[in-house]
C-alpha cells in the first residue's frame, strides 16, 4: 500500500515536470516558428532566387542555373566594376576596421579597468554611440565632414592646417566612413573586454608582482591569454558586422550610392541597388550567397585558429 502510494505520487510529480517541459517547448515553438519563417526560409529562398532570372515585377521568373554566379565572376574579373569595388571595399573595411577597433577598445578597457573615480560615467560615454541610431549618427558625421563649414574643417582651420575634402574625395571617403563605424561600435567591444578583464583572478597579478614581472610581461603573459575568449568572440562578431556594412554608407554618401567613384560601396549596398533599383534580384541574391560563403569561411577559420585552449 505504502509502495503503491509512493509510486503514484512520484508519477504525479513526473507528469507535472513533464507538463512544464511540454509547455516550455510550446512557448519556445512560437519564436522558433517565427525565426524559421522570417530568417531561415528567406535565406533558402535567396539561394533559390540566385538560380533564377528573378525580376520581382515580372509574372515569371525563369530558371537560369548558375548564370548569376558566372556574372559575379565576370564582374570581378573586369578591370573596373562596381561589384569588384564593392568586394574590395568590404575587405578593406574588415581588414582595417576590425584590428583598429579591437586595439582601441582593448586600450580603453584597460584604462577604464584602472580608474575608480567617475568610471561609470566614462563607461556610459563610450557605450552611448553603440545604442544610438546608426543613421542619425551617420547624418551628423556627414555634416561634421562638410568642406569649409563642417566642424572638423573648422578645427583644422583653427589649427592653421589645410582643409580636407573628407567624404568628397575617393582617397579619403573610405577612411572617413570607417572612422565613424569604428567609433560607433567600439563601446560594445569595450564592455566585452571589461567583462573579460573582471574574470581574471587578482591572485595571478599578485603572483606576477611578487615574481617582479614588468607591466608588459604581465599584460603579455597573463591579461592577453586570459582575455582570449573575449578576443575570439569580438573578432568573429565584429568581422561579421563589418562584412555586412550598409547603413553608414547609404547615409553618408551622395544619394546613397557609395561614391565618389565607388570608393565606399559595400557588397550589401551593391546587393540592395541591384535588387531594388535595377530589379536584378537573381544577381543580387547570388551576391548575398557569395557574401554568406565569405562570412562562413572567415568565421570557421577564425574559430579554429584563435579558440585554442590556453593553459
Amino acid at each position: 500500500m505504502q509502495r503503491k502510494h509512493t509510486r503514484k505520487s512520484s508519477s504525479f510529480h513526473m507528469t507535472l515536470a513533464r507538463k512544464k517541459i511540454v509547455w516550455a517547448y510550446i512557448f519556445l515553438a512560437i519564436p522558433i516558428v517565427f525565426f524559421a519563417y522570417i530568417r531561415i526560409y528567406p535565406t533558402f529562398f535567396a539561394f533559390q532566387m540566385s538560380l533564377h532570372d528573378y525580376n520581382p515585377l515580372a509574372a515569371e521568373q525563369p530558371f537560369v542555373g548558375f548564370e548569376n554566379y558566372e556574372k559575379v565572376y565576370e564582374e570581378l574579373s573586369k578591370r573596373k566594376s562596381t561589384t569588384k569595388a564593392a568586394f574590395r571595399n568590404t575587405i578593406s573595411y574588415v581588414a582595417l576596421g576590425v584590428p583598429i577597433q579591437l586595439f582601441l577598445a582593448l586600450a580603453i578597457a584597460l584604462m577604464l579597468n584602472e580608474i575608480r573615480f567617475m568610471s561609470t560615467l566614462y563607461r556610459i560615454l563610450f557605450f552611448l554611440p553603440f545604442v544610438t541610431s546608426t543613421i542619425a549618427i551617420a547624418w551628423v558625421f556627414r555634416m561634421l565632414y562638410q568642406p569649409r563649414f563642417g566642424l572638423f574643417n573648422i578645427i583644422l582651420q583653427l589649427l592653421s592646417l589645410p582643409q580636407q575634402p573628407f567624404l568628397t574625395r575617393p582617397q579619403q571617403a573610405l577612411p572617413s566612413v570607417l572612422a565613424l563605424v569604428i567609433w560607433q561600435g567600439m563601446g560594445f567591444a569595450v564592455i566585452i573586454f571589461l567583462a573579460g578583464l573582471k574574470q581574471i583572478p587578482r591572485t595571478y597579478y599578485e603572483a606576477a608582482e611578487v615574481d617582479g614581472a614588468s607591466r608588459w610581461h604581465t599584460f603579455r603573459f597573463i591579461t592577453l591569454p586570459l582575455l582570449n575568449p573575449s578576443i575570439v568572440y569580438l573578432l568573429v562578431l565584429q568581422t561579421i558586422s563589418f562584412l555586412r556594412m550598409f547603413a553608414p554608407v547609404i547615409a553618408m554618401t551622395e544619394q546613397g550610392r557609395g561614391g565618389p567613384l565607388d570608393s565606399t560601396v559595400t557588397v550589401v549596398l551593391q546587393t540592395y541597388r541591384e535588387a531594388f533599383q535595377s530589379f536584378n534580384m537573381g544577381y543580387a541574391s547570388s551576391l548575398t550567397v557569395v557574401l554568406f560563403a565569405m562570412i562562413l569561411g572567415v568565421t570557421i577559420i577564425q574559430l579554429s585558429v584563435t579558440s585554442r585552449r590556453i593553459n
Binding site: 574625395r169 561614391g259 565618389p260 567613384l261 565607388d262 533599383q277 535595377s278
Partner: peptide, 20 residues
C-alpha cells in the same frame, strides 16, 4: 533602359575627370 544606371555612368565619367 535603366535610368539610374545610365545616370551613374555619366556621374562617374565626370568624377573621373574632376577627381581622378
Amino acid at each position: 533602359v535603366d535610368e539610374s544606371a545610365q545616370r551613374q555612368v555619366l556621374i562617374d565619367a565626370f568624377d573621373n575627370i574632376r577627381l581622378g
